[in-house]
């Protein structure tokens, strides 16, 4: 688990077939410019490949970009796969998500949803807050972002 002054490590990925990667690439640069370490997996990732990357890279957060209206199926599946692997890192979703879906995604365990038009500073802040919140709840419960098996 990263020390509080170590840079935040974020895995960024497109889950599934959706190829719209403009937003995710911009987010990658925004987070890098904000001092974070970005592990950019790119296109056509599966929940398994993202879990593997999050484990290997000791990621503090997973960012998914979704533009094909598959978020209600895929985002909860991602949260489920991470938790099944005993990873507590927060999942942040960006892209085209209708307002009415945000609540349901948060209920399904997604840490935050970034809509179109979020500014660079908002993007970085949302990631920082999500990581901080996850670490706080970890300290209270499991005591780490990852449990070795």
């Amino acid at each position: 688990m990263s020390e509080s002054d170590a840079p935040i490590r974020v895995v960024l990925a497109k889950l599934g077939l959706d190829g719209h990667d403009r937003g995710l690439k911009i987010v990658a640069r925004i987070l890098r410019d904000a001092g974070m370490e970005v592990i950019y997996l790119g296109l056509r990732q599966t929940t398994d490949s993202i879990v593997a990357a999050a484990e290997q890279e000791d990621a503090d957060a997973v960012g998914l970009s979704m533009h094909n209206a598959g978020h209600m199926t895929l985002a909860p599946a991602m949260v489920g796969a991470l938790r099944a692997a005993k990873l507590t890192c927060p999942v942040i979703v960006g892209g085209i998500v209708p307002d009415d879906d945000v609540e349901a995604l948060l209920d399904a365990g997604v840490a935050a949803v970034l809509g179109p038009g979020a500014s660079a500073s908002e993007v970085a802040q949302v990631v920082r807050d999500a990581v901080a919140a996850a670490e706080a709840s970890d300290d209270a419960t499991v005591g780490g972002s990852k449990v070795e098996t």
């Binding site: 599934g16 077939l17 959706d18 094909n68 209206a69 978020h71 199926t73 895929l74 599946a77």
Partner: peptide, 22 residues
């Protein structure tokens, strides 16, 4: 839809959540 564009059938694992959406 995305699975069709990528040459995948609707019953493919890859198609999950994307059938008929876009």
């Amino acid at each position: 839809d995305m699975p069709t564009l990528m040459g995948r059938d609707s019953d493919s694992q890859w198609a999950l959540g994307e059938v008929g959406r876009a």
